[in-house]
């Protein structure tokens, strides 16, 4: 038998508003209901690599690396072999000191944060940006200081970096990594 239109119950009305609340949304947005949000520990979801492009950036990376992180690892980089950007080798700050080839560094990684203070790392920036792009690894560029000394490094990163944080300081690196739960 057809249900008369007037008695049809919309899905919204199927969950009645509680007494004192005129609608489902009003009740759900209350402070009292906020207490029932499910609390489960949030596993660090990001496997981050932080790469310092120049000596001053490396000093910042070293300082940040000393904090407790779940999976984040910190590197400095060597020169880019002419014509072979993927031949770039990196050195883990708290590792054995043995060089790690760029492709190996990117294995299992889903976000790379590049730190720069000046332009000496522009070729490395382009190499890392391009390699990340090819592997669908999200890239974030953090430019420490006022940024004027690093405009070429920034330009090299710009096509690839999902986000560029300009005029940043060490606190930004910490806050960004903390917010990303790495």
């Amino acid at each position: 038998m057809a249900v008369p239109a007037a008695s049809r119950v919309t899905p919204t009305a199927a969950v009645p508003a509680a007494p004192g609340y005129p609608s489902q949304s009003a009740r759900a947005a209350s402070a009292a209901e906020s207490r029932f949000r499910i609390t489960v520990p949030i596993a660090p979801a990001r496997n981050a690599r932080v790469v310092a492009l120049d000596p001053a950036a490396a000093a910042v990376a070293r300082s940040v690396a000393g904090r407790p992180w779940a999976h984040a690892r910190f590197y400095t980089c060597g020169p880019v072999p002419p014509g072979v950007p993927e031949g770039l080798a990196l050195t883990e700050l708290q590792g054995s000191g043995a060089p790690v080839p760029l492709p190996e560094l990117l294995e299992g990684t889903d976000v790379v944060m590049v730190l720069a203070t000046e332009d000496s790392g522009r070729e490395q920036a382009a190499a890392i940006g391009g390699a990340c792009w090819a592997r669908a690894v999200t890239t974030a560029g953090v430019v420490l200081g006022d940024g004027f000394e690093a405009d070429e490094a920034v330009a090299a990163l710009r096509p690839y970096a999902r986000v560029l944080l300009l005029s940043a300081d060490e606190g930004d690196v910490v806050d960004l990594l903390t917010a990303l739960r790495v």
Partner: peptide, 18 residues
């Protein structure tokens, strides 16, 4: 809908949230 004061300890931010 986040509630009167959202609990930001539960967020999962991404680089686009910089």
């Amino acid at each position: 809908s986040m509630g009167p004061i959202v609990d930001r300890t539960k967020e999962r931010l991404v680089p686009a949230d910089s």
